[in-house]
Design a protein around this nucleic acid. Structure first.
Length: 262
DNA sequence: CGGCTTTGACCCGCGC
DNA sequence: GCGCGGGTCAAAGCCG
């Protein structure tokens, strides 16, 4: 292939790649880190992995065009050019195959990691699993005056007042996870309402307190604090279990005035 | 206008 | 009993 044809082939290849990605729309490559709400991430279906790098003109059409208007004298020259173009096409197709395989592998690994993260965030891990996040969560302290609407009103000694065993079990579920995030907003599929913020000793970053926006029906609370050791890590402590279904992703758009969807 | 965030005040348990 | 620190309340302000 001569130097004049190369840029043209590259240009057409680039155009076709752009069209393919656009056509695939949601199914485009979406494996980048920090892709927003993982639940809304369109890249949830393995079958969506697609990267068609076809270069936009068939071998047949190439033959037709190359055979047209050919004079006998320059037929050999054109034939040589055609051979080079075909060779280049084969190379591109091969590269396409390699890239597709690579992308597929990356996506499947991303998929596995994503599933692991969602598992951690939704299925509040059992207390014993917290061992990997030292120091362990401090015992929940409750006010003496706490009544029935302060679910699981338990003091640090474990004395329960006016709380059913079910409520106790629910409030006893405390899980702690560490998440890498740029902002204090960490999406986990539920709506949260911030009710307080406090500067905590030995940590320059304030701790934020959130309640599930379904409160008081839902007793779940969470604390979010940036790690003092690694500021890119958020330490999120969940208390209790949700007693309602997770809001549908579509609800996000209708949630009037919801500025924090953590 | 309703629902959210902000933030200072207050409450409570714990250690001394 | 007192002071400290963590957790919560609630008024004020903000925002869509």
């Amino acid at each position: 292939m001569d130097e004049k044809q190369r840029p043209e082939l590259r240009r057409r290849l680039a155009e076709d790649m752009a069209i393919d990605v656009a056509d695939n729309g949601e199914s485009g490559v979406c494996c980048g880190a920090g892709g927003g709400d993982l639940r809304q991430n369109p890249c949830t279906d393995e079958s969506s992995i697609s990267l068609d790098l076809s270069i936009g003109f068939s071998e047949r059409s190439l033959q037709v065009t190359t055979k047209k208007n050919l004079h006998a004298s320059d037929y050999t020259v054109k034939n040589q050019k055609k051979g080079k173009i075909e060779e280049e096409m084969k190379r591109v197709v091969e590269e396409n195959r390699r890239l597709t395989a690579m992308l597929s592998s990356i996506c499947s690994r991303h998929h596995a990691l994503r599933a692991q993260l969602i598992d951690l965030m939704t299925n509040s891990p059992a207390p014993e699993s917290q061992a990997s996040f030292p120091p362990a969560a401090a015992p929940i302290r409750r006010r003496k005056s706490e009544g029935v609407n302060r679910i699981g009103a338990a003091d640090y000694r474990g004395n329960y007042k006016e709380a059913s065993s079910e409520e106790r079990a629910r409030s006893a579920r405390v899980s702690k996870i560490c998440v890498r995030a740029d902002s204090m907003v960490m999406r986990d599929g539920y709506h949260w309402r911030k009710y307080g913020q406090k500067v905590i000793r030995d940590n320059p970053y304030p701790r934020a307190y959130f309640r599930c926006s379904f409160a008081p029906v839902c007793p779940v609370k969470k604390k979010v604090q940036r790690s003092s050791e690694d500021e890119s890590v958020l330490v999120v402590t969940y208390e209790g279990e949700h007693n309602h279904v997770q809001p549908a992703p579509a609800d996000h758009h209708h949630a009037h005035g919801l500025r924090s969807y953590c």
